[in-house]
């Protein structure tokens, strides 16, 4: 799948996962990459931006073996943002599907 396309989707995917559960970085990243092939390293910049924008917050929790882990928890703002993104996503995919089904593909004008 196209990298640019994935970049846009990743935001909604990460928020959706955090809505269900609190994750630490590695767990979240590897869980996503089970479904979507991508450079795992590029999730961290996204998480950090979410944190800066107040969509998620982080806390440290002990792990049974090794140093404490940084967990990510979605905030109210994050949940709102997610709902909004899903609305946009559905609208967008619907429009794309309509265009494709009507044969209006851009590489075959007329």
């Amino acid at each position: 799948m196209n990298v640019q396309l994935k970049k846009g989707v990743m935001e909604i995917v990460v928020l959706s996962m955090l809505r269900r559960k609190e994750y630490y970085g590695y767990e979240l990243v590897t869980d996503i990459s089970k479904y979507i092939e991508m450079s795992e390293g590029t999730i961290y910049p996204l998480l950090n931006r979410f944190k800066k924008d107040g969509l998620v917050e982080t806390y440290l929790a002990e792990s049974h073996n090794g140093p404490p882990r940084k967990y990510y928890r979605i905030t109210e703002t994050g949940r709102e943002e997610f709902k909004e993104s899903v609305r946009e996503w559905i609208q967008f995919t619907k429009a794309v599907r309509t265009l494709l089904e009507e044969g209006g593909t851009p590489n075959e004008p007329n």
């Binding site: 970085g25 590695y26 990243v29 450079s39 795992e40 390293g41 590029t42 961290y44």
Partner: peptide, 27 residues
């Protein structure tokens, strides 16, 4: 650093973890 630690605990080699992470330039 934390990602490498977790990966090591999960039994991956450094090379495997790097491959999954993608290129530092992408990051």
């Amino acid at each position: 650093e934390a990602h490498f630690e977790e990966g090591k605990k999960a039994g991956l080699t450094e090379e495997e973890i790097c491959r999954e992470l993608g290129s530092p330039k992408d990051v």
